[in-house]
Design a binder for these strands. Sequence first.
DNA 1: GCTTGACTTAGAGCGCGCTCGAACCCTTAG
DNA 2: CTAAGGGTTCGAGCGCGCTCTAAGTCAAGC
Lengths: 155, 155
Amino acid sequence: MKIGELARQSGLTAHTIRYYERIGLLPRADRDHARRRDYDASILTWIEFLGRLKATGMPIRDMLRYAELRAGGAATEPERRRLLERHREAVRARVATLQDCLLVLDGKIAGYAGSSERTNDDDAINPRPIHDDERHAVQRQQRSGSPVARPARAR
Amino acid sequence: MKIGELARQSGLTAHTIRYYERIGLLPRADRDHARRRDYDASILTWIEFLGRLKATGMPIRDMLRYAELRAGGAATEPERRRLLERHREAVRARVATLQDCLLVLDGKIAGYAGSSERTNDDDAINPRPIHDDERHAVQRQQRSGSPVARPARAR
DNA sequence: GCTTGACTTAGAGCGCGCTCGAACCCTTAG
DNA sequence: CTAAGGGTTCGAGCGCGCTCTAAGTCAAGC
């Protein structure tokens, strides 16, 4: 299978596939006699799993870690498991946050009743810690040692 | 309330608060005699709501739209409502996706049984459309006309 | 033989949402 | 009077995850 075909089947662009190979998320592809990438269909399974990790907000560096462990063979399975378990917890937490926010949205929408009854705005329902951007929530939970230590802001 | 105090109470940094004001997410703050921002506690309610929108993945440009509508008075309420309703749907869809992915994770983790029983890898459970990165899912649903038309790639 | 078009590489550029630095201003405590 | 410590503006820089350009190679169809 050529890269174009894989792109079609995976939903990634050829550019992205090459990028993933470059950074190590995908194994270096076999080449045909003309040095073009020639894929086995089995790669789709891996790409699909990567898609799940991405869809759940795992940063590339963590997917990379998982990919490396995978390449390291069966001995790394316990660690891979731990990695996924930690990630699962992060995702669960995120789902909880989203559901919490949905309640707020519901309340707010109800405030804009029927076609317009109340003028009330700004009502905060269900207060809870905010500004914990979910895009980074996973990282924060999973990253242990950052390369350049961040100032550990109070927040 | 000075910006530092607001930062402490809201969980944002002073830098971010100024940035939000600059782009229009926060109304221009009143200044004291020394031209320093002086906030009323009521701003916290708005920041908290913005936090909810952010936590649910709404891009800043949409929050901005909402903020503009809000400034436009009661006449804009129906549109504000529609905006929130659309967003709510996007969030619900995201929750569904995450839950779907959680099932896959559960299966994968179960595959790395007890402390190590199977060597099985790569098992794709519960296949479904992937590579629909949630970070952008909301935008795609909500954006109507993009400034520079994107090539509308097949994907 | 020539065109078409999918492929190759290296590397630059982009959109997002901050985040920070520089240089300066003002107030307050000692 | 001085120094600390918060505030101000403007604009540059960053981390992420792509996304695209340029210049070239190769193979198949007419």
